[in-house]
């Protein structure tokens, strides 16, 4: 049986190849033997091993995860599609704000729009302040006593009349409400 195999050309070719490779196989076996010896020696060197493990322990301790963390990681993975959706929205909002921050023309546009809405109000306020200031200056410069005749004349002024009518109506409403 064995001799029959030897007569097979394929087996003969394989033996030839193996014989040719024998020097290389020898070198490899020797190198493996040396490596094994080194490993055995290291394993026997308890002191070095203890030192090595202590260092690794110290370095990696902050990466050691508890079961709780692993559970959380899997929960997070489950929620990932939803989180990605929110993060995408946030990313879009951030990109929009970034774009707006760089877009001087749009900033000018908003500013001009705001000014247009504020202008009528601020001009009214400015007008009111100017009226009060002028009245204050005039009042301070006038030391004449206000006579009864002057008071009668003042009461005919439409603005005073309007104010008095409002005061009268206000008093009436207040009286009615307080009765209830």
């Amino acid at each position: 049986m064995f001799l029959e195999d030897l007569s097979d050309p394929e087996v003969q070719e394989a033996i030839t190849v193996l014989i040719r490779k024998l020097p290389k196989i020898k070198d490899t076996v020797l190198a493996a033997e040396e490596g094994l010896e080194v490993a055995t020696s290291i394993l026997r060197d308890q002191e070095s091993l203890r030192y090595l493990f202590e260092r690794v322990d110290g370095q990696l301790s902050r990466f050691f995860v508890e079961k709780e963390s692993i559970d959380a990681l899997f929960t997070l993975l489950e929620k990932m599609p939803k989180l990605v959706k929110y993060v995408s929205v946030l990313e879009q909002a951030a990109d929009f704000l970034e774009s707006l921050g760089k877009d001087k023309q749009s900033q000018q546009y908003v500013l001009a729009g705001m000014k247009a809405y504020i202008a009528p109000v601020s001009s009214q306020v400015e007008h009111g302040v100017a009226v009060i200031r002028e009245a204050k200056v005039r009042a301070e410069g006038n030391s004449e006593p206000v006579s009864v005749f002057r008071l009668f004349k003042l009461m005919k002024d439409p603005t005073v009349q309007k104010t008095l009518r409002f005061t009268q109506s206000l008093l009436e409403v207040l009286a009615e409400k307080s009765k209830k």
């Binding site: 774009s99 707006l100 877009d103 023309q105 749009s106």
Partner: peptide
């Protein structure tokens, strides 16, 4: 006021 800003910085940016 708002739509032009959204156009330049949102729509044309693919956001």
């Amino acid at each position: 006021e708002l739509l032009p800003i959204l156009y330049w910085n949102g729509m044309l940016k693919g956001l």
